[in-house]
């Protein structure tokens, strides 16, 4: 799905450079905990989050996330937007709450790849890893 479509579905505003809008995404991951994003997200996915600090941009950079949507009208500081521009990660802001933003994109056919989740070592770790 193209970022243009995602922007329209979420009534979102793009707050970084327009040029990056040529990106498109195949999957979505949604969380406020960056450690979780670093553990389970897929490379190239769209991240939906309610956190707006610089670590979110860093997380996206390390995990090769291609676009971030901030929910509930939350805007990061200018310095954080600049960092995203530097890393060529488009940022979108929607007034929708996280729940409805997820619902709308899921309705339009986007999914979490999530193969990594079913084989997550959550139980394995207690069994002596």
């Amino acid at each position: 799905m193209s970022l243009d479509e995602i922007r329209d579905i979420l009534n979102a505003t793009v707050i970084t450079h327009q040029a990056s809008l040529r990106n498109s995404v195949e999957s979505v991951y949604c969380a406020d905990l960056m450690s979780d994003v670093l553990s389970f997200s897929d490379s190239g996915c769209l991240l939906i989050t309610g956190l707006t600090n610089a670590q979110v941009i860093r997380t996206a950079e390390m995990a090769a996330i291609s676009v971030i949507v901030f929910v509930q009208g939350k805007r990061p500081a200018l310095q954080t937007i600049r960092l995203a521009d530097e890393k060529d990660i488009p940022l979108l802001v929607t007034d929708l709450p996280m729940f409805d933003a997820c619902g709308r994109l899921f309705e339009k056919g986007l999914r979490s790849q999530s193969a990594s989740i079913s084989r997550a070592p959550i139980v394995a770790c207690h069994e002596g890893c």
Binding site: V28, Y29, C30, A31, F40, I48, L96, P97, M98, F99, D100, C102, G103, R104, L105, F106, E107, L110, R111, S112, S114, I117, S118
Partner: peptide, 20 residues
Amino acid sequence: STLPTFELVGKLYALGLRCR
């Protein structure tokens, strides 16, 4: 749920639940 947030919320939304 075994699902990640995005998928679970997507299904709740499809059942008619909304945040607002």
